[in-house]
């Protein structure tokens, strides 16, 4: 598949940090649906970049580790500067099954600007810890109240965008980008849709969700929400 149904060129952006155990398999599966794959290696300490290159992806390596948001920003910029019309975003840890990519693209073709893969539209969210589930549900509720949306998984990183929609969104923060981006998209009137995506808890590699991430999460979410409400008006 060179482009999607509307003839636009598609690229898959995979932010990766120390994912040498899983990234190759993810790239191979993604390339069954999207030929152009970009891995943004966020200054991994392992062989992520090398493994991704060998698996056939274009790799952009950060010099410094700055977080998922920063990696995505680099990926978006690459995609926009290379004239891609559709950007699919998928994690390198194998939690996002690439077989849902056609569905994401189909939803975009149906007139959406942003499509989010949700684990809460099926039973797979039950595999995650209850604290995490409660956290996601709470921030999704806040996002829905403030953005006037009806989403179920605002923190999901499995997404597809129209390039034109991405251009309308502001600069992503280096970390904890999902709530801010979704809220901003909603407040700018972009059409957001969710599709059901099974996301089992990761079984290989090391999770990036640490105790410090967990403890700092509420504060960072509050920061994201306030930033959108105060500084990113439609």
């Amino acid at each position: 598949m060179r482009g999607n149904a509307s003839g636009q060129r598609v690229i898959a952006v995979i932010p990766a940090y120390n994912e040498e155990a899983t990234v190759a398999e993810v790239i191979r599966s993604v390339r069954e649906h999207v030929p152009n794959v970009l891995v943004v290696d966020d200054a991994s300490c392992d062989q992520t970049a090398q493994v991704a290159r060998e698996a056939g992806a274009v790799v952009v390596s950060h010099v410094l580790n700055r977080g998922v948001g920063a990696a995505l920003r680099t990926g978006y910029r690459y995609a926009l500067e290379h004239g891609f019309g559709v950007i699919v975003q998928i994690d390198a840890d194998g939690q996002h099954d690439p077989r849902y990519i056609p569905e994401l693209l189909q939803a975009l073709n149906g007139g959406c600007d942003v499509v989010i893969g949700s684990r809460f539209l099926n039973e797979s969210h039950r595999e995650h810890g209850w604290v995490r589930r409660v956290g996601i549900r709470f921030f999704t509720w806040v996002g829905n109240r403030l953005g006037g949306t009806n989403l179920t998984d605002i923190t999901s990183g499995y997404r597809a965008y129209r390039a034109e929609a991405l251009k309308r969104l502001g600069r992503l923060p280096d970390r904890h980008w999902a709530v801010e981006q979704t809220l901003e998209a909603a407040r700018k009137g972009l059409k957001i849709k969710e599709i059901s995506v099974k996301m089992p808890a990761r079984r290989r590699g090391k999770s990036q969700f640490t105790l410090s991430t967990f403890l700092g999460y509420p504060l960072r979410m509050l920061d994201s929400i306030l930033r959108v409400l105060l500084f990113r008006r439609s």
Binding site: V58, V63, R66, A70, H82
Partner: peptide
């Protein structure tokens, strides 16, 4: 952050030895 982004993209171009062109990894 911005410098990191710029540098990584320039490094990628330099490694591929190309100006901004479509990646050929089909």
């Amino acid at each position: 952050s911005k410098l990191n982004e710029e540098l990584s993209l320039l490094k990628a171009l330099h490694e591929k030895g190309e100006a901004y062109e479509e990646p050929s990894n089909e």
